[in-house]
Write a protein that binds this DNA or RNA. Sequence first.
DNA 1: GCCAACGTTGGC
DNA 2: GCCAACGTTGGC
Length: 139
Amino acid sequence: MRYWLFKSEPSEWSWADQVAKGEDGEEWDGVRNYQARNFMREMKLGDLGFFYHSQKDKEIVGVVRICAEAHPDSTTDDERWDCVDIEAVAPMPKSVTLADIKAHEGLQDMPLVKSPRLSVQPVTKEQWDTICEMGRYGK
DNA sequence: GCCAACGTTGGC
DNA sequence: GCCAACGTTGGC
């Protein structure tokens, strides 16, 4: 099982939009970046991810699960682009802000901090556990 | 195949 | 709203 982070601008696609989709999930489409695509190709059914709001909020607001592995992006005919489907699992009881992450020992190496523009990123088990604790995301 | 130009993203 | 960083595109 691996962990990931999905970044979205809330005005484009927010956590509320994701939750509204329920168990059907939604394509994480529109990604036109090779690194991000490659990460999506590595994702397995059941992997978990953080849902991050960029721009105004800059915080992790919820947890999602991969509910379909990589398949062609339906928003383009360009066969280079694949995407996965994700479904909302639960909100973060306490959202974890970018400032929190930057201030926290051991989290400064996250791509979120180092490569803020990468829209899909891997998260290590240690980082995952730390952030869950910060967000009071329980077992 | 290189590299300059351009567009986009996202933090501040 | 600005600007820096980065990735992609396209001309050569």
